[in-house]
């Protein structure tokens, strides 16, 4: 694949990669006996954009929730070499999480929804509202601070959700099929905005999707997953340089990458 081309705007181009989180032999067996994940080894570099791509039931959401600490793995380890650790040695990485649904509190305004993580940290009111307003500006929602979620469209709600995930200035942004429920026009626009947020903030992104096209467009690296039991079958680097824009969607390079990833996905599902 193409290694040449301008590299400006690619957060990883200048610095040597440093591991943010390292998963070794991660396994998850649910109470029902289903083996959701088996032997997952994955290293996520600081500043990287990694997609977990696979069919439904391949455990990609489970893997994301394990990284988030919402689910404990049945076996294997999860190391955060650069994160803060408490006295008991438990890592407390700064996380942002975006669910498939916007998951906003309907009883309060956009700005207060975004300020929630800061409120839970105990930050003073004026400071957290200021930070939340800034995060809303970053996702293009200036002027919508005092709108209730019901007054916002699906795409706008998702922007609020992304602003909430970014407001704590996290090390890693975990996204669980965030745009799957949106129409294609809105999804494309959010794809581009997510890429510019990624470039501007330098946040590491782990993005769960079942769309080959979306994963190729966004990612620097794709972990192709397969089901029964859920596992990572292959990792593919998408070498096309950032920043990427709509022109990339129609380029031959994009089409070629999509073919490669589709073939890998077919192979993984057949295996």
């Amino acid at each position: 694949m193409n290694h040449l081309g301008p590299t400006t705007g690619d957060p990883l181009a200048s610095a040597a990669p440093r591991a943010l989180v390292v998963l070794r032999g991660v396994e998850k067996r649910f109470g029902t006996g289903t083996l959701a994940l088996r032997g997952v080894d994955l290293t996520i570099q600081t500043g990287d954009f990694v997609s977990l791509l696979g069919p439904s039931g391949c455990g990609k959401s489970t893997l994301l929730r394990i990284i988030a600490g919402l689910i404990a793995p049945s076996a294997g380890t999860l190391d955060w070499p650069r994160a803060e650790h408490d006295a008991a040695g438990v890592a407390h990485p700064r996380l942002g999480f975006v669910f498939q649904e916007p998951t906003l509190m309907p009883w309060t305004t956009a700005v207060k929804n975004v300020a929630l993580p800061l409120r839970l940290e105990g930050m003073a009111r004026s400071e957290r509202l200021e930070r939340a307003a800034e995060a809303l500006r970053r996702v293009g929602l200036a002027g919508f601070e005092h709108a209730y979620p019901r007054a916002l469209s699906g795409g706008m709600k998702m922007r609020v959700s992304i602003a909430r995930a970014l407001v704590t200035r996290p090390d890693i942004l975990l996204m669980d099929e965030p745009f799957a429920a949106l129409d294609e026009i809105t999804r494309f626009r959010l794809n581009n905005d997510l890429l510019s947020i990624w470039r501007e903030t330098g946040v590491t992104v782990v993005f769960v999707t079942h769309s080959v096209f979306e994963s190729v467009y966004l990612s620097r690296r794709i972990a192709v997953m397969a089901a029964r039991p859920g596992r990572i079958e292959r990792e593919i680097a998408i070498e096309a340089p950032h920043p990427r824009d709509e022109a990339f969607r129609t380029s031959a390079e994009y089409a070629a990458a999509c073919r490669t990833v589709s073939a890998a996905l077919e192979e993984a599902m057949a295996a």
Binding site: G69, L70, F99, E101
Partner: peptide, 14 residues
């Protein structure tokens, strides 16, 4: 309460 919101509160160690 919305289960995802409960997860979000857990994530921020509320």
């Amino acid at each position: 309460a919305d289960h995802n919101l409960v997860d979000l509160f857990r994530l921020y160690r509320a």
